[in-house]
Nucleic acid binder design. Structure first.
Lengths: 248, 248
DNA sequence: CAGGGTCATTTGGTGTTCCAACTTTGCATG
DNA sequence: CATGCAAAGTTGGAACACCAAATGACCCTG
């Protein structure tokens, strides 16, 4: 990208891209230091520096005497929210709510950003966005509402069937097609009284609050998607972890 | 410590220790590469390598032409919760709530774990823990309640003055003295109606919910501290990020 | 064919050197 | 005394060299 970047970072970018797009699948060997110096015409310092950075990110790992290889779990951008799960403490139930039948309905439409979303996406008030409303159900009962906003530049050219169930091309897939990679995820959580529409949609008893999550995906220091996620406050908790779950 | 470690890691250990125990307070300058090579009798590679590792951990930061300095926020094992902050959306206020006068009162005591905490700390029901109650205030008004639990084995031997203001040795400092390092932080968030005592302590208007955070620190796959944190639901939001804040 | 030894290759640690860009300090000049 | 400029010091990038430990492939021997 930026040819002003130091050489070793450009090597990092190149290899990372190859890992992301599958050219270098998990387990594949990375060229050795000697090979990298020849291939890119760089010094050994830059080559080993690039390998160190990639290894530090966990994308590859090195074996002394053997070589560097692509990690099994590419461990994408980690905001380890261990998903929602039910009930309040004390709850001994193990985390993964398995066996549940989860469904998701959604509908996309073209809309104007508006001041709130414009600020979150760092775009103009008048800019157009693709707004997608989701409703998640577990075992048939509504569990989560979400509204997602993406600048139309990311969604243009992709078919937007206005209705469907779970066959929409994912955000990540669409972004990587545009050469973008999500580097950060920020979630802002607060609690509030549900709006009437939410109360109906989530079938909330009166007096129940909701947890509201504003989530924004960033790629290269620029927002690419933001969403409002609403879940019933009496049945869900959010779990965040600094790394892979220690309980797993 | 382990004299089998590579030299640069031993330098890292030494500097990290000095930062942890306060010998190098936030803002203090780290010896330059040239000084480190002389002080420890090492090559420049090892010196710069140590600085790189520390900077990578966020413990220090480098300014070209000036030097390396201890970070203001030691940025412990990163669960990047960008702290609480006020008001609800839309809020354009920038994140760092500066200029505020934050105080913290606390009181420690010896207590029995009980089933709930015992499960979270993976210890016996009957085991003894050090329980510390905190109350945080900003600008004089109560903002956050917290109760922290640590197995007594981590607190024994450390003076536990039963009352005080903000001079207690930090969890990290005590753990590092025991050779332990916090590797994971897990936070579980939900919302609920405040208990009467909480309503009083936080001066909550009626009808306001609270955000309840159960936080557990892990060191080497074993819990070393867990706490319940309660904040008013009408004035605070929690922000989690997958890496350093992109807005900063 | 099985076993063992040799050798090229690879990673990771370490030292040295050079350079560009930037900050800080202090001195000299007006 | 104030201002400006030059020198010294610092970070970060980059190249090159050497070594120890480990690996893997190859070949030779029994």
């Amino acid at each position: 990208m930026a040819s002003s970047d130091p050489i070793y970072l450009r090597i990092v970018e190149d290899i990372r891209r190859q890992i992301n797009d599958g050219t270098l699948p998990p387990g594949a060997p990375i060229p050795s230091r000697a090979q990298l110096t020849r291939k890119y015409g760089i010094g050994e310092t830059a080559a080993r520096h690039a390998l160190r950075v990639l290894a530090g990110e966990g994308l590859i790992f090195g074996l002394v005497g053997s070589g560097h290889y692509v990690s099994e779990k590419p461990e994408r951008t980690a905001l380890h929210r261990l998903r929602f799960h039910d009930s309040h403490p004390p709850f001994a139930a193990d985390l993964p709510p398995q066996g549940r039948r989860a469904t998701c309905d959604w509908r996309s439409e073209n809309a104007q950003a508006g001041p709130d979303i414009a600020m979150r996406l760092r775009i103009d008030d008048q800019a157009r966005v693709t707004r997608t409303r989701y409703i998640f159900r577990t075992d048939g009962s509504p569990a989560q509402l979400a509204v997602s906003y993406e600048p139309t530049e990311f969604t243009d050219g992709h078919q937007i069937p206005s209705e469907g169930t779970d066959n929409r091309k994912s955000l990540m897939a669409r972004l990587s097609a545009l050469g973008l990679k999500v580097t950060d995820i920020v979630e802002s959580v607060y609690t509030r009284v549900p709006k009437p529409a939410e109360r109906d949609a989530l079938e909330l008893p009166s007096g129940v609050h909701v947890l509201h999550i504003e989530r924004t995906h960033w790629a290269a220091d620029r927002p690419v998607e933001t969403s409002d996620i609403v879940v019933p406050g009496d049945r869900f908790r959010l779990v965040y972890a600094s790394s892979t779950p220690p309980t797993a």
